Deep mutational scan, measured.
Amino acid sequence: MATGGRRGAAAAPLLVAVAALLLGAAGHLYPGEVCPGMDIRNNLTRLHELENCSVIEGHLQILLMFKTRPEDFRDLSFPKLIMITDYLLLFRVYGLESLKDLFPNLTVIRGSRLFFNYALVIFEMVHLKELGLYNLMNITRGSVRIEKNNELCYLATIDWSRILDSVEDNYIVLNKDDNEECGDICPGTAKGKTNCPATVINGQFVERCWTHSHCQKVCPTICKSHGCTAEGLCCHSECLGNCSQPDDPTKCVACRNFYLDGRCVETCPPPYYHFQDWRCVNFSFCQDLHHKCKNSRRQGCHQYVIHNNKCIPECPSGYTMNSSNLLCTPCLGPCPKVCHLLEGEKTIDSVTSAQELRGCTVINGSLIINIRGGNNLAAELEANLGLIEEISGYLKIRRSYALVSLSFFRKLRLIRGETLEIGNYSFYALDNQNLRQLWDWSKHNLTITQGKLFFHYNPKLCLSEIHKMEEVSGTKGRQERNDIALKTNGDQASCENELLKFSYIRTSFDKI
């Protein structure tokens, strides 16, 4: 039985969820670079991206490699990797027998973001014989899940209580170790020597080791999670996991709180800001991140802002960003909400898709409305799209047979046209069989910064309504002859009103 693990408890099935942008060198404390989270699957090609990484700022997932063999891993080693800020997950990587050479110096898994409450997941690794993470000293947050690894031993010899604050939620089941077939031998045991430290858990006094050649490092209890030197002297209180010299914040392997210019500090002093819960960055760093993602459509890219001495992905609820200094300031009234469309555009074809934009005031991208039916549609669209004030790209209304009016965009005031449909149009209306009105132009103002209007096959939309939009939106004169079809717009509506004058002759039985 794995020490510190839980057996036999019912657990939810383990679901495996399925960018080499360097964020800056980590400095003297770390020998390499800070790398983003990685999802490495199918083959070993991307694994080489770990070569210079000291910190993975995010998670590391290595999974679904069915053609790899043990010899493929023999020359692979990433000794610079010290810390993973989120979680480490391995799933069905064939041929991998140990992690001792792959990650010989991995010391800390912070667990800032977890995989279903777990910071370390080893699942269905069919050839893994031992973990071998002999320098792993601290899992700051989260638990361990090690399950269905039929060859995995050296679990009962690990004292997880020396690595985690609590072992109650560890789930370590259905491994070879369960069948008591392992016969784990710690260093020196074969020669009758006791080389590794022994600890007591559940009444068992057991030597602690990761492999037959690597003991588990056990520091004096007084050192807590700070770690200790090879001689057993406690590291500085700002260290986490390990250090090369005692009581020196510049000799830590990793930091308990924050890293700044080669030393570990309790908090980031001005003019620095907390970033990702582990390091200090200056304003320029946060500003660069903001600008890199301002026009990016890459998933996970955030326009970072500053709030409460932190550089964070977005302002919290009730705050909006001051564009001059990136500071989050309290909103006066309802907060603006910028919604970034991942692929640059979004099609609204149902109430469900409209709900995804609920509360958005600025759309960074283009909207395509293609709704053919739905219950209580006008009210639903207004509830979900009615706060949109600005669209950076274009607005396209296409084959939306259920629409009679666009009044559900009740606050839309600006279409920038930074991206144009077919390279020309910022407003595009095609084949809307029941569209009769755009907006009530006596109450609604709309500016279209650039781009043209396109109207074709809107049989109940009168040309007068379209011409009014040209005047109000500032697009009059931009359109070419064929942009607004004269014969297919309003051709099934009563669009022309003329005053009919009647004269009559009164007659009676005795007068003409």
Rank of each mutant, 00 (worst) to 15 (best):
H307K: 05
T320E: 15
N242F: 05
I62V: 11
N117L: 00
H307P: 01
S237V: 09
L128Q: 10
D248K: 04
A190W: 14
P79V: 04
K67D: 03
E130L: 03
H291P: 01
V55A: 06
S161L: 09
N257W: 07
I56V: 06
P313A: 14
S112R: 13
L164I: 12
S317A: 06
P270H: 10
C335L: 02
C335Y: 02
C264Q: 03
L88N: 01
C235T: 00
L88H: 00
Q276W: 07
I122T: 06
I201Y: 09
K310Y: 10
C311K: 04
F258R: 04
A198S: 06
L174C: 12
L131V: 07
G58F: 00
D165W: 12
N138H: 10
K148P: 04
R162C: 11
L63E: 01
T140E: 09
C209E: 02
C182D: 04
C243H: 00
K80V: 07
M321P: 13
K191R: 09
R74K: 09
K67H: 02
E147Q: 07
D159M: 03
E207R: 09
E207K: 05
H307I: 07
E33P: 15
A190Q: 09
G227W: 05
F283L: 12
I222P: 04
D288V: 15
P249L: 06
C196W: 00
T211V: 08
R298H: 02
T140S: 07
D177W: 12
K129D: 02
F66G: 00
F275P: 00
G333Q: 15
H226E: 05
H212F: 08
V305I: 05
E97Y: 12
V206K: 08
S98V: 02
D288S: 11
T107R: 00
T199K: 11
N242L: 11
C196Y: 01
G227T: 08
E168Y: 11
R69F: 08
H302L: 07
C215Y: 03
G333A: 12
R46P: 02
K191E: 03
G188V: 05
D247A: 11
H291V: 08
T85M: 12
L240K: 11
V108R: 04
S98G: 00
N242M: 08
L99A: 04
P36L: 08
T157C: 07
E124W: 00
S143P: 05
I306C: 06
D39A: 04
N325K: 07
T68Y: 05
M137Q: 12
S225Y: 10
I122E: 00
V253L: 11
D178F: 06
D178N: 09
I122D: 00
I109C: 00
P104G: 03
L60Y: 00
I158G: 02
T229F: 13
E49A: 09
T107M: 03
D178R: 11
Y30T: 06
V305S: 11
D178H: 13
N309K: 09
C280D: 00
K67N: 03
Y304H: 02
I56N: 01
W160H: 02
A190E: 10
V253M: 14
N282S: 13
E238N: 13
P270M: 13
R46S: 11
D248H: 06
S98N: 07
S323N: 09
C280E: 00
C53R: 00
V281S: 00
Y319P: 00
I201A: 09
P316S: 04
P36H: 15
Y87D: 01
N135I: 02
N295K: 15
L332R: 13
E180I: 08
P330T: 15
D247K: 07
C328A: 07
S225R: 07
R208F: 15
Q287T: 13
R46E: 03
G188C: 04
C209R: 02
D177H: 14
I84M: 01
S244Q: 04
P269E: 06
F258D: 01
E97P: 06
C223K: 01
R162I: 05
L50F: 06
L155Y: 01
L63Q: 12
Q287L: 04
P330N: 03
S244R: 09
T85I: 05
P79L: 02
L164E: 07
Y259R: 14
D75Y: 14
D247L: 09
H214D: 04
V167L: 03
F285K: 02
L90V: 04
V93I: 06
C196S: 08
E151R: 12
E57T: 08
V265N: 01
E314R: 11
K148V: 01
C243M: 00
C209P: 03
H307D: 15
T250W: 10
M38K: 15
N308M: 08
G95Q: 12
T320S: 10
N257F: 05
N308D: 12
V121W: 01
D177N: 09
C239M: 00
E180P: 10
D159P: 04
L233R: 14
K100E: 10
G95S: 07
T189K: 06
T140M: 07
N42L: 00
S284M: 10
N170P: 06
T199D: 14
I185C: 13
S323Y: 07
Y272G: 02
T85W: 00
N309G: 13
F73K: 03
P220L: 09
D184Q: 12
H302G: 12
E181S: 06
S161F: 06
P70V: 11
P336E: 07
T250Y: 08
L99I: 07
G300V: 10
E51C: 15
N202P: 11
N257I: 01
D184E: 05
H226R: 11
G333D: 15
W210I: 04
I139G: 00
K224H: 07
C328D: 01
F285A: 06
I185M: 06
N175L: 06
F258W: 04
N242I: 09
Y171A: 06
K224G: 11
P31F: 11
G262L: 05
E168A: 15
T45P: 12
S284E: 14
S237R: 12
